[in-house]
Each structure stands twice: as structure tokens, then as C-alpha cells.
């Protein structure tokens, strides 16, 4: 059982690190601000989540586990809200996203070139 937990937690840690790294590279590689948010959001969700889950498997039952869950929940809520706030503020300040098109659910989802 012990060894199984270790293996699972290692897999989670490695996968989480991989996703963090991917997000970090995306942060550098994507062309403009609005697409970079998506890259950052990889590290915030699956990257952080997997690392935290990996740690949880090491923690065993107890307060540490509960605290890890708390941190994960907090960071998901806070990270999401912060991403949204940044995107909104950027849009408001006049930064326009470069897009290939826009869609509207009311026009039947048909793409319309802007």
C-alpha cells in the first residue's frame, strides 16, 4: 500500500511538473497577452493540482492533507478570479485581442469575420 501511494504520488508530481513547465513555456511562446493567459491557466489548474495531489498522497490522513486541500481550493478560486480580472482590465484599457473571428451564440453559432 505504502509503495503504491509513493508511485502514484511520484507520477502526479512528475506530471504536474511537466504541465507547469509547459505552461511556463507557453507563457513565453504564445504571441499576445490573451493567449498567454491560457498558458498561465495550465500551470494554475492541472500543474498546481497534480503537484498538490502528489503531495497529498505523501501527507497521509491528517491536518496536512486538509491544509493541502484548502490551499488547492483557494488557489483555484483565487487564480481563476485573478485571470478573469486581468483579462477584463486589459480589455477595458483598450488592449484588443488578435482573433481569427468572432462567434455569437444568438446567430446560430455561425462564425462571422470581424
Amino acid at each position: 500500500m505504502e509503495i503504491l501511494f509513493d508511485i502514484v504520488s511520484w507520477i502526479c508530481l512528475v506530471a504536474g511538473s511537466f504541465f507547469c513547465l509547459t505552461g511556463g513555456i507557453g507563457l513565453l511562446r504564445f504571441p499576445e497577452f490573451f493567449s498567454r493567459i491560457h498558458a498561465a491557466s495550465i500551470t494554475d489548474t492541472l500543474g498546481a493540482g497534480l503537484i498538490m495531489i502528489g503531495l497529498m498522497f505523501q501527507a497521509g490522513w491528517g491536518l496536512v492533507l486538509a491544509k493541502l486541500i484548502l490551499i488547492l481550493l483557494f488557489s483555484l478560486i483565487a487564480g481563476t478570479t485573478a485571470s478573469h480580472a486581468m483579462a477584463k482590465a486589459a480589455l477595458k484599457s483598450g488592449l484588443q485581442p488578435q482573433v481569427v473571428g468572432t462567434m455569437d451564440s444568438e446567430t446560430g453559432g455561425a462564425p462571422s469575420k470581424s
Binding site: F74, I77, A78, T81, H84, A85
Partner: peptide, 13 residues
Amino acid sequence: IILRVVAKMMIPL
């Protein structure tokens, strides 16, 4: 709206 609701949850904590 989003900031308001989330802040209402976070501030007591």
C-alpha cells in the same frame, strides 16, 4: 460581479 461574489467568500476566511 465575479470579483464581488468571490471577495465575499474570501474576506471572512
